[in-house]
Each structure stands twice: as C-alpha cells, then as structure tokens.
Nucleic acid binder design. Structure first.
Lengths: 225, 225
DNA sequence: TAGATTGTTAATCGATTAACAATC
DNA sequence: TAGATTGTTAATCGATTAACAATC
C-alpha cells in the first residue's frame, strides 16, 4: 500500500495553517544552518517562532517521520524535504500583471527570486506602459497574455491591478493556462476549483493593526481625535 | 451594567478571524452603497464574499444588534459602525521605516490613505537616502526616530527593512512610543504585549501558492522540472 | 397576516495542546 | 544505562454551521 518511491507528500493536502507554519520552519532552519547549527529539537524551533513544541512535531509528522528521538531534527536533512513539500525546489515561471507602484516594487523584491519564483513576463493595459522595459523585461499588452503565456509556459501570475478589473484579468489568466494567482487587488476573486489562489490584502492588514492598537490600549485613546 | 454612551465595542477583543472578515464586510458594503443599494441580508452579503450567512450574522452580532429582522442590515447605518469598530474613523499618524523598493511603493499606495493611515515621516539608515524627498516628505536618519516620533505624535510604523535589522528597528520604534507595527520584514518579531503587531510575509505567501498549485494538480506536475 | 430575516443556542467540525510510550 | 526527544493518542479549546424562536 505504501510506495517507497513516492515523494514526501501527504495523502490529503495538509491544512492551510500547517503549510504556513512549514514556511516559517524552513526559513528558521535556513537561518540556523547559516550559523552552523546541525540539529534542533521541536521545542527549540518552536520557541524561536512562538509555536508550541507539540505543534511543531505534529506539523512535521504530517509529511513523514523526519525526526530522531532523543536527538531532534537534522537541519541539513530537513531543509530540502521542506523545500520539496512546499514546491520551492523548482523554478516557477511567473507573470507580473499590472505595473503600478506595487507591481514594479514586487518585480524587484529579492524574496521572490530566491524562492524559485522567476518573473519572466510583464503585462499591462496602459498604452504608455506597454513597450517599456523593467528589470530587463518588456511590458506586453494584456491582450497578448494567452499567446505569451503559452509560448513561455507561464504557470503563475502576480496580480497587481485595480480592484475593478481584477476578476476579468484573473479570468483571462486562467483561460491562458495559468495555474495559480497571487492576488494583491482588494477584491474577492471567484476562480474554478482547479486554480490556486492566494490573496494579500494590504488595506485589510492595516485595519487589523488599527483594531489591535485600539483594543490593546482599550479606553486610553479618545474615540475621535 | 450597560453604559448607553459607550461606543459599539466588544467586552473582550473579538477573535482575529472575526476582525478580518469585518474588514471584508465593510469594503463590500461600501461597494454596494456606491451602486445605490440600501439594505442587504446576511445571506446576500455572505454569498458575495463566500462566507456562510450564520457567520456573517454572528460576526456582526458580536458588536451589537445592528440588523433588522425581516429586512436585513441598513448599509448606510452599518458602514460607520464598522469603521468605528475597526478604528478607521480617525487619522492614524504613521511612519514609514525603510525606503527600499517595497517601502517606496507602499508610500504611494492609495489603499492606505483612503483608510485613514497617513504617512507623515520617513526614516532610513542609508546616508544616500537620508535627506531625499519622497511624496513630499524628507527622509530622516533612523536615529532621529525618537525625537521626530514624539514631536509629530506618531502612532504606527510600517516596517520595510531587511530581516536582519527588523528586531532592532522594531525595538527602537517601541521605545519611541509607537503603538503598532505593520511588519513586512520576513522575520519573527518579539514585542511587548502592549504593542500591536501585524506581519505581512510576502515570500511565505508565494510558498503557499506553490503548495496549492502542487496539490491542486496532484501528480500532474513532474516533481522536478 | 405571511414572508423574510435576525440573533442566538446547540451541534459539528477542526485545530491546538498535554501527556506519554517508544526510541535513540 | 540515563536523559532527551520523537510521533501519536486523548483532551481541550475555539471556530463554524445548522436550526429556530423572536421580530418586523
């Protein structure tokens, strides 16, 4: 019933919360390795990230028995396993759609390239932007998305377009064969089950912060200043 | 036991998940108002956002009985209530720390200003950047944070600095009297209980997307390409 | 009134934590 | 061996959903 040649992957997709912690574990392990550490226990790793030790063990055990009782986890051994689980052990061909301020900033963001996300095509609808060059790439008209995506084999899209057009652009991306969208537009997107979607909603985040400040200092801030 | 003059605020802070949905409700209500709608039921609002109707009612009832049985919620009435709950019915004096690509992009991001978050001071450590002007503001040396923050009454900070220095800069922000931090550095921050923290981790988000694509097309993508 | 919809209780579901035998 | 730490089961906690009397 078990296939020894299969990759370390769960039977069912692990809960979303588990996966976001796996990202944190990986980054922490990479930092530890940089400082010469060889092994780490679940309680050490957890306390660095503010996570319960049982949770660390349970999260990792989801994917296989990677730990060594009495010793902990081998950092060098665990890193490539986690990279494989997350799917960042390969190159992801990515398009950036929308070259406003945020789009241009993300294009230069180093955190992406180092994780295997390679932006290889740019798209916009603004005639003034089409034809411009950013980070060595020429901006295409959005109309060209289907042909360019097919030609280059684009898999992911980073969406930094206005909320009003986000759904239409996402629809076009999907008919162009794109498998996953990282959405920065503050709009709820309706996509088919087969397409992966992660949304990053910056204004919502700031609202969370305002609420937290208000409740942390409950009563100390006048209601309207 | 109940004080009729008190603002619509919960006894205890509502769960984090509730608050992020309240942000979504508010934005959807603002859109509906723009299109002339007057009332909306929990099931209509929920289906626009992919949220269960009972959850919508429960989330809102957390803060008070704002609905009208048989009718739904008055959009015009609910919007200012939600703005008050989130704390975006006022101006938040905000500093931006770190003028790299992401920082400069966020400075121009329209989603912030419209929500009451006003960036009124910029800080960096790079001598080449100090003294520059962005969006009409002069970049201060980070050393000046305590004095400038006190002088201007800065309440929030947006942190777009490298991960290695994030903790030190956050510590300085807190001793400068800043009450809340929106952190974009990919590092876990350790802050006192009294300081509010929201972290936005962009590389983690892309990793979530890669994992989702992988599991959505389980087995259809070769393990290494 | 009849129909619609709320606020809330109870039921369900899922996620986190504690505890501990098994292992090195 | 003794001490440390895993993987996992059971207990706890919290969040979501269903159901429905109360209300307009």
């Amino acid at each position: 019933m078990t296939d020894p040649f299969r990759e370390a992957q769960p039977e069912k997709p692990a809960p979303k919360a588990v996966i976001s912690r796996v990202s944190l574990y990986l980054r922490q392990l990479e930092n530890l390795q940089r400082f010469g550490h060889k092994t780490i226990s679940s309680s050490q790793l957890g306390s660095l990230l503010g996570i319960n030790d049982a949770q660390v063990r349970k999260d990792l055990a989801h994917f296989g028995p990677f730990g060594h009782p009495g010793i902990g986890y081998q950092i060098e051994e665990l890193i490539p396993i986690l990279r494989g689980i997350l799917g960042i052990d390969r190159v992801w061909k990515t398009a950036l759609i929308g070259l406003g301020n945020l789009g241009r900033a993300l294009l230069r963001y180093r955190g992406f390239r180092g994780r295997g996300f390679q932006v290889i095509a740019l798209f916009d609808t603004d005639p003034k932007k089409i034809g411009q060059t950013h980070a060595g790439l020429t901006v295409h008209s959005l109309q060209e998305l289907p042909t360019v995506a097919a030609e280059l084999g684009i898999q992911l899209a980073i969406l930094t377009v206005p909320a009003e057009v986000a759904q239409a652009v996402a629809d076009l991306a999907i008919t162009s064969g794109i498998q996953g969208i990282l959405n920065f537009a503050p709009a709820p997107l309706n996509l088919p089950e087969t397409t992966a979607l992660v949304s990053v909603d910056l204004s919502t985040q700031l609202e969370q912060l305002a609420y937290k400040v208000l409740t942390a200092h409950a009563g100390q801030i006048p209601p309207h200043e």
